[in-house]
Amino acid sequence: MATITTNPSDTKTGDAPQSPAKLYGFIAEFETPGDLMAAAEKVRDAGYKWWDCHTPFPVHGLDGAMGIQRTWLPIFVFFAGMTGTIAAFLLQGFTNSWNLTIWAGVWVTGYPYLISGKPAMSLPAFIPVMFELTILFSALSCVGLMFLFNGLPQLYHPLFKSNRFRRASNDRFFISIESRDPNFLPRKTEQFLRSLGPVSVEAVEA
């Protein structure tokens, strides 16, 4: 059942002899989320670090089966949000100030508006803006850092070479182990993946 093809998507013909293709890693194909979960637990326990699961839809509990650690993202987002709060407070405090000139690209001077007799430094009036900037900074940093941590945007990926892998966005479940993993030995890793009971195992070029 399991087949191994070294270069399934290569349609190039008549090219000059190429240097031997570098191996990106192996992908193993599974038919159900349950099979994938069981296999992921074994890959995790085998000590692999540079590997991933690819599924057409979110599979509950997969992060536990993969042994994914808690992300640091919330810590960064917290401080980004606090930065937003403080920035909004300083911005409003400064714009309502007088006799205060700072350089922010150009020289700017605070200009106090008298609004319904309120003091220049009116915290209740500042809170909506402080709230909004907290949300804005948190949301932007959350999305931006999530992209950064995941190495996105990434317009190309070696796995795209595999025709078989296209079904990862349709009806199949894949595990990929990369060759840069310290535990990676081509023959051993391939046999290990096969021992997990996949539908197929395939090598993918870098």
Partner: peptide
């Protein structure tokens, strides 16, 4: 979903 069927 996923392994939800294992709940009894």
């Amino acid at each position: 979903m996923g392994h939800g069927a294992s709940h009894a």
